[in-house]
């Protein structure tokens, strides 16, 4: 079943076309990556799909619901971990999770159970009572993802989940994201080539808002005749310039 369907999705700001007639299908349970350098339009695409900003043209359907007309329905089954770590800095990790449970209207039992479950899933025990604002970038990202998972979303958007993290923190976060694979449809954005290759079932190469190529990592390497995604990416982007 198609979980996310983009149809000519377009966003224009005054003089830039941030996302340019993007069309693609993401299957339920798939981990799909949008790969592109800074300014390619990844965040804008996520903002439209999560109903934060309206498309200028085109539409997208999440589990069959239109982002233009049925955003209230969509909000019930999506969650986002934004590019900037969106946490409440003055609250502890536990309080942050509890806040999200409250916002989603969970009962006390369900809240306790959810916090226990996510603490285990994202190995947050050791920082549970620390102030979120005082944690390292890696821990903040983990908390941010945990907060997104609270509502048991069917579609999860991760905008540059490992931006600015060191190698170890990144590798740990990759394990966490891999563990989510299959349970929830994930659309993640990244400008790290190796991240797209390591995590995604399929990936789309984005440049200036346009989709240049969309396939499995192996498919993209085969199509370009390169042996790494990085080389393949460079070739695809250069050829598009001509």
């Amino acid at each position: 079943m198609v979980a996310v369907k983009l149809e000519n999705l377009t966003k224009k700001y005054k003089d830039v076309v941030a996302v340019d007639r993007l069309s693609l299908d993401i299957e339920e349970g798939e981990l799909f990556a949008l790969l592109g350098v800074n300014g390619a339009g990844k965040t804008t695409a996520i903002k439209m799909l999560s109903c934060l900003t309206a498309p200028t043209e085109g539409d997208a359907f999440l589990l069959g619901k239109s982002i233009c007309r049925e955003s209230a329905d969509i909000k019930a089954f999506i969650a986002v971990s934004p590019q900037e770590t969106a946490i409440a800095p003055g609250l502890s990790v536990r309080e942050n999770l509890s806040l999200m449970c409250g916002i989603h209207g969970f009962s006390r039992e369900k809240k306790d159970e959810k916090i226990r479950e996510l603490t285990e899933q994202l190995s947050l025990e050791s920082v549970l009572d620390r102030r979120a604002g005082k944690l390292s970038g890696g821990w903040q990202r983990r908390l941010s993802i945990a907060m997104a998972l609270i509502s048991e979303p069917r579609i999860l958007f991760l905008d540059e989940p490992t931006l600015g993290l060191d190698v170890l923190a990144r590798s740990e976060l990759w394990d966490i994201i891999r563990a989510l694979k299959g349970k929830v449809t994930i659309l993640l954005t990244t400008h790290y080539m190796e991240e797209a290759e390591a995590l995604s079932d399929r990936l789309a190469i984005l440049k200036d808002g346009k989709l240049l190529m969309c396939d499995t990592p192996d498919g993209i390497k085969a199509a370009t005749g390169e042996d790494s995604i990085e080389k393949a990416f460079i070739r695809v982007v250069k050829e598009a310039k001509k």
């Binding site: 903002k47 999560s50 109903c51 934060l52 909000k75 019930a76 999506i78 969650a79 986002v80 971990s81 934004p82 590019q83 900037e84 770590t85 969106a86 946490i87 409440a88 800095p89 999200m100 916002i103 989603h104 209207g105 907060m147 997104a148 509502s151």
Partner: peptide
């Protein structure tokens, strides 16, 4: 202003708030 800048508000906008 901080909630807007840190994207915390974005997260909340995608909830039923």
């Amino acid at each position: 202003a901080k909630d807007r800048q840190s994207s915390f508000m974005h997260r909340l906008y995608t909830t039923p708030m």
